[in-house]
């Protein structure tokens, strides 16, 4: 279980300019399955897989301790 704001904060710790959209698609209100869309200039020029690695690194602690069980990521490089 994690609040949207906490996910945004985690991402902004690593990607300060990030604009983040979160959709909680957990069933039964567990709040641990999310679609996360992140826009950031930091993605510019990076392969998509590395953009996603950056987001996973940012939310790594919440993945490890189970607050986030599953995340579907979408990243958009901003110029």
């Amino acid at each position: 279980m994690i609040e949207d704001a906490s996910i945004v904060a985690l991402i902004r710790d690593s990607l300060p300019d990030a604009r983040v959209e979160i959709v909680d698609w957990s069933s039964f209100g567990t709040r641990d399955h999310f679609n996360i869309t992140v826009r950031s200039r930091a993605f510019a020029g990076k392969p998509l897989i590395d953009q996603h690695r950056m987001v996973y690194d940012a939310i790594g602690a919440a993945l490890k301790d189970g607050r986030i069980h599953a995340a579907q990521l979408k990243t958009i490089a901003e110029d």
Binding site: I49, H52, L73
Partner: peptide, 11 residues
């Protein structure tokens, strides 16, 4: 080669 998951493969 590693390609992540369908978040990478779908595009």
């Amino acid at each position: 080669t590693f390609y992540g998951d369908t978040d990478i493969l779908e595009p």
